[in-house]
Design a binder for these strands. Sequence first.
DNA 1: GCGATTAATATGTCTGCACATAATATCCCT
DNA 2: AGGGATATTATGTGCAGACATATTAATCGC
Lengths: 231, 231
Amino acid sequence: MSDAPISWQSIRDTMMRRIRTRVYAPGALIPNETELATEFGCARATVNRALQDLAASGFLDRKRKAGTRVMAEPRRKASMDIPLIRAEVEARGQTHSYRLLLREEATPPAAVAAQLHLKGGERLLHVQSLHLADDRPHMFEDRWIVLDTVPALTDADLSQISPNEWLLREAPYTHGTIELAAACAGDAGGHLQGDPQTPALSLLRVTWMHETAITFVTQIFAPDYRLSLDL
Amino acid sequence: MSDAPISWQSIRDTMMRRIRTRVYAPGALIPNETELATEFGCARATVNRALQDLAASGFLDRKRKAGTRVMAEPRRKASMDIPLIRAEVEARGQTHSYRLLLREEATPPAAVAAQLHLKGGERLLHVQSLHLADDRPHMFEDRWIVLDTVPALTDADLSQISPNEWLLREAPYTHGTIELAAACAGDAGGHLQGDPQTPALSLLRVTWMHETAITFVTQIFAPDYRLSLDL
DNA sequence: GCGATTAATATGTCTGCACATAATATCCCT
DNA sequence: AGGGATATTATGTGCAGACATATTAATCGC
């Protein structure tokens, strides 16, 4: 007999539609939760859930007492899965393989030390490796790892498992940064096929465990590779 | 006298720490909400809030009846602000300017039509423009806009406002895709300085209003530009 | 055994209420 | 008028209970 309860998702969708169609103009204040709860015939908590979701997605800006307003310029964020190379290659139906090219303990160049905020004196592992898709070079990677942060890595057999996978499994990070730039295929030291002059996508990543650096990696992808993100 | 209530954030943090320190191993099942609520001395709803948050961040996988388990490989997501060029340039303390290079109604090449899922016969606006930072070329953009989707654009003065800003303000999109690749500076038709052979970062973006394409844009950045993301 | 029905269980979410917190508006005293 | 205390208000969150829903486990009939 009684009406079915209204879901917070349906409220979110309705409000989203109103934002899109400018029933609520950009920058404008929308009715407060109590009024909306009355309108939708539900509890205020349900409206709250819906509006929090829209705020998390960047469409609303909420402040106590000030109320909820439509973001003037929705700062949409693109999200991208952190490329776990093997999974990505295999998802395309290709065979992934991996080759360890270099493994040494060494002192890093100043540029690397700066990225990792090193004080000097840390033990660093320097690893170069090549990932292949269907036996064709896919990505060359040059990596520096702070052994003091992940001592267990000393015993890892990096000829079998890529440092990326090992670290992801064994050394969770708290945060990190990625930079995308253009490089030359030749910067991969001749390990990628084709003309060394060909432009290639390169990715630089630094990851941290709290304030302690874990690793700095430079990856250069095969020239035809494209990195996809969703909006 | 009584204990202060436990916040869902503190529960989330505690659980996060347990995941990181492997109290809950990757892939393992964690206690159910009722048990955790007892442990933390709070209502089940509070635990639910915390676990939903961790699931949304990709650390937990939850299924009804099956329970909650730690994701074997946390698929961390990198997020990046959609580059609103002007804001980005000005945030670096540089002066942003913009030049409209071309504006025409035209039939798109097949590759563009395919990206936009066009049936043929749509009116398309083709716009090329250049963004400058401190009067130096920063980014060249080649854009196709589906006028049937955003008819109001016909009256916009694109010599004053960049199509990117106009669209962001006037034509919200529901979703879209971005691809990042490497190109040559010369692909910008000589509008970027330097050797045409120099590698340059290029960004391809398609945005949609539901199933209807809005715009397809190819941007080529100055060779020294790097795109930054956070993990 | 085997397939189909049924029970059990963990998560999903709504309600109504209470109180906390942040930000603003108002009042009051000087 | 100015400045500071105070009231007001909208959101943030906690709780207990109830029911919904998805999924697995168990059971039953054949």
